[in-house]
């Protein structure tokens, strides 16, 4: 089967249907689901894990999990893409946690330079929603941006962020919560 062919017209948004068929062991639906969603899931794995090798292994893990758990997807409870991405993120985070050495590189809180934001071309490709989130994230203080990005991309929790930033847990929590409130206001 050629994987890279475009899905037939009318099936492009059929992710919930694909998942339902996958839950009954339908491999063709599984292949179609993979075709449509793997690039984004691979993007998540690549971004969260250090090496391509880890991302490639984790992507397999993600889809084997999808194969087993497709029956648990409930379209009433959210979009299929979000459900898939949650699995991708969780598997990538599990992978990070199984490492002998968790990522511990320090996060500097005392400088003001912003982390590299995606360029305009990337944003245009990614669509409006993404551009809006990046723009709002960009309105936060550089340090807060860095903390939120690190939380998501490195799979780091409050506790891990506090350790890496060498700050008390309470400081980090309150700082990020305030940043989330601002992010929410900007995105509203």
């Amino acid at each position: 089967m050629t994987l890279m062919q475009e899905p037939p017209a009318g099936q492009r948004n059929g992710l919930p249907e694909y998942l339902e068929r996958v839950s009954r062991g339908d491999r063709e639906a599984f292949a179609a689901l993979y075709r449509q969603t793997a690039p984004r899931m691979f993007g998540i794995c690549l971004r969260m894990l250090d090496t391509r090798h880890e991302a490639e292994e984790t992507l397999q893990d993600v889809y084997l999990t999808v194969w087993r758990k497709a029956g648990q997807f409930d379209p009433e409870r959210g979009s299929a893409m979000t459900w898939l991405a949650t699995i991708a993120r969780n598997r990538a985070r599990d992978r990070l946690r199984t490492r002998t050495a968790a990522r511990e590189d320090p996060i500097a809180l005392d400088d003001d330079w912003a982390d590299a934001a995606p360029n305009a071309e990337d944003l245009a490709l990614a669509g409006d929603d993404s551009a809006r989130v990046h723009r709002c994230l960009g309105t936060l203080e550089p340090v807060d941006q860095r903390l939120i990005r690190t939380a998501f991309f490195d799979g780091a929790t409050y506790t891990q962020l506090a350790a890496r930033a060498a700050r008390p847990l309470g400081t980090i929590k309150s700082r990020i919560r305030r940043a989330l409130v601002r992010l929410k206001e900007c995105l509203a």
Partner: peptide, 13 residues
């Protein structure tokens, strides 16, 4: 929103 941050990283495996 969180996933939108990832959108620009999509890549064909």
């Amino acid at each position: 929103y969180a996933l939108a941050l990832f959108a620009s990283t999509a890549e064909d495996p």
